[in-house]
């Protein structure tokens, strides 16, 4: 039987903050301290480009939140894989300043009733921007928690009226070696291409992001428009998108083309299917700053099993990795 004697120093039940206000307060503090931090951090610590960011007005809180601690702005914007600017984690924040994100247009083509070249402003018109706090799991076994600003990919795709033949959505990153010096070397087959099955693209979790931490995306994070599919390894969330093509055939995606035995089309986060060279069972959460912080267990579909597991019902995820 559980009878607990109250220790005089224990808080009275009336003094205990209820869970909801605790989390709301915590989130508010996190967001505000981060916003303040972003303003106070000296330029040389972040990067010049990160500071050109402007604050979004009218961003509404979105669904699928998490109570996990946000990864600090500085880490989110200085530890990046964006090979278009170099293969070291610090290269993107150093060199992405050369990317021109204005004006920006996106070509929409393939199996749609309304193809065309759309200006970014037109794409954003009437799209309610939302805060989406997502876990981000890199295939290299590190992870972050990032407050994106974005909108539903499904809503945008519907606007182009996909035909009945549209089975896949293919995205392409800008190819411009002058602005993206990393493209001068053939580390990967350029331009970078990623793709989703249409039902994956239509899942409410999938968003196109235009910002993070309430501000426009820094170039190194894929400005001005990037995909975020949080149940998949980070490389699926393609950056600086200039083309969206709807296709009947499964597109060949960049990492799959570069090393087909290591990176599949689906690339769903899966602790039971290891990368051929390293384990995917656990991950290192970026942002603790401590060298003694332990790894954390990787979750199936990066913890979004409830939202996306039905997309893969009956599929062998070992084969379709």
């Amino acid at each position: 039987m559980l009878i607990r004697k109250r220790n005089p120093s224990d808080p009275k039940p009336s003094e205990i903050t209820d869970r909801k206000s605790f989390h709301e307060r915590r989130r508010f503090l996190q967001m505000s301290s981060v916003a303040a931090g972003a303003m106070l951090v000296p330029g040389w610590l972040v990067s010049e480009k990160a500071h050109a960011a402007t604050k979004f007005q009218d961003v509404k809180p979105g669904p699928f939140g998490t109570d996990e601690k946000l990864t600090p702005y500085k880490d989110v914007t200085t530890y990046n894989n964006f090979y278009e600017f170099g293969t070291s984690k610090s290269d993107p924040s150093r060199y992405a300043g050369s990317l021109k994100t204005q004006p920006w247009s996106v070509v929409v083509e393939g199996e749609v009733a309304k193809p065309g070249r759309y200006q970014l402003e037109d794409l954003l018109k009437g799209r309610g921007l939302q805060d989406r706090i997502y876990r981000h799991r890199c295939v290299e076994a590190w992870s972050m928690v990032i407050p994106w600003v974005g909108f539903s990919l499904a809503d945008l795709l519907k606007r182009f009226e996909p035909t009945s033949k549209a089975k896949y959505v293919e995205f392409t990153t800008l190819y411009n070696p002058k602005q993206m010096p990393g493209q001068r070397r053939a580390v990967l087959p350029w331009p970078y291409v990623e793709a989703l099955r249409i039902d994956e693209a239509m899942n409410p979790l999938a968003i196109l992001a235009v910002g993070l931490y309430g501000e426009t995306l820094p170039n190194q994070n894929g400005a001005p428009l990037r995909l975020v599919v949080p149940w998949k390894y980070g490389f699926k969330s393609i950056k600086s998108i200039v083309k969206i093509r709807l296709t009947e055939q499964q597109p060949r995606t960049t990492w799959d083309a570069a090393a087909p035995n290591e990176y599949g089309f689906y690339a769903n986060v899966n602790p039971h299917v290891d990368h051929p060279r390293w384990s995917q069972a656990s991950e290192r959460r970026i942002g603790s700053g401590s060298i003694f912080a332990p790894r954390i267990k990787t979750r199936m579909f990066n913890g979004y099993e409830k939202e996306v597991a039905q997309l893969y019902a009956g599929m062998d995820l070992r084969k379709n990795f």
Binding site: D75, Y79, K89, S90, W142, G287, G289, S290, A293
Partner: peptide, 15 residues
């Protein structure tokens, strides 16, 4: 760099 926490976002990887 350990003492001054100057190992970047992923200190264990850096080490």
């Amino acid at each position: 760099d350990i003492y001054t926490a100057n190992l970047g976002a992923n200190p264990v990887e850096a080490l």
